[in-house]
């Protein structure tokens, strides 16, 4: 698996798109820091961008890579390599190169700006950690979509739909149900609903650390307990891990049963 990972990764880090993606973050980081000069505001702006853009790029890039490397995959399938190794190797290759673009692209300007002496370093690293998680999750989901759909157009359609659903539609339905059932106690429901969407989960995880936890705690004891203690951080991170592992397992399962 690591050989495949290595080659996919090398292939990708030399692709034009990785550079574009990397340069985008680099530029974003510099612009935010040097035009703004306010680290904590930059972190908030970055959060807004990361939780929307990372899933989008992850899904699109994942699906694109999978379809584009179809023939190469066939070449590999004829080699004495386990199937799961091929797909997981490719998956981690894509996910790692995307994550690297993100981490380096944002890390360099922040490091130059003097992040290590600032107390925003924890917020910032949390931002990168969730960004990496989102990359892992959405690339894995994209691979799942691609492996289940022979038709490229359908695959792209589903992946954009997935992103749209997770980034926007889910929250709309969530909000509607909250308003619809406003006379019932909703705190447990809303926490649960947050857990079922990795984008919402990452958002709350970052907000948790951006000192807004008390603001969220304003609604009641359940929120307060969740957001005010380490419990929230712990549960959110474990849920993100679950969100990462589930599609990877399905990918491995599907890879074993697929004809090429």
């Amino acid at each position: 698996m690591f050989k495949i990972l290595k080659y996919s990764f090398y292939d990708l880090i030399r692709s034009r798109w990785s550079y574009v993606y990397f340069l985008f973050y680099l530029l974003l980081g510099f612009v935010l820091l040097f035009l703004n000069n306010d680290l904590s505001k930059a972190v908030i702006t970055l959060m807004n961008i990361i939780i929307i853009l990372v899933p989008l790029i992850g899904t699109i890039f994942g699906v694109m890579y999978f379809y584009n490397s179809r023939e190469f995959t066939e070449l590999l399938l004829a080699q004495p390599i386990k199937r799961t190794s091929i797909f997981l190797g490719q998956y981690f290759g894509v996910a790692c190169s995307l994550s690297l673009s993100l981490i380096l692209g944002l890390g360099i300007p922040f490091a130059l700006y003097g992040l290590f002496e600032s107390n925003a370093i924890f917020d910032f690293s949390l931002l990168l950690v969730t960004g990496t998680f989102l990359t892992l999750i959405f690339t894995a989901m994209a691979f799942n979509i691609a492996i289940s759909n022979e038709n490229k157009i359908m695959g792209f359609g589903y992946s954009v739909l997935l992103w749209l659903f997770m980034a926007v539609i889910y929250d709309g339905l969530f909000l509607m149900s909250l308003i619809l059932f406003e006379e019932y106690p909703l705190d447990n429901f809303s926490l649960l609903a947050t857990m079922f969407n990795p984008i919402d989960l990452s958002r709350t995880l970052i907000l948790l650390k951006l000192d807004i936890s008390a603001l969220l705690g304003y609604t009641g004891a359940v929120f307060k307990k969740f957001f005010g203690t380490q419990l929230g951080l712990f549960i959110s991170i474990s849920m993100l891990c679950l969100w990462t592992l589930a599609p990877i397992f399905r990918l491995a399962w599907k890879a074993k049963r697929k004809d090429f």
Binding site: Y10, S15, N68, E71, Q79, P80
Partner: peptide, 25 residues
């Protein structure tokens, strides 16, 4: 099984490889 493929060579119909790699690589 997958090990047995060590003893097979296969030339696929469509030769399409990862575009960013060099031939030697």
């Amino acid at each position: 099984q997958w090990k047995y493929r060590e003893n097979i060579e296969y030339l696929p119909q469509i030769a399409n490889f990862p575009g960013n790699l060099k031939v030697s690589e």
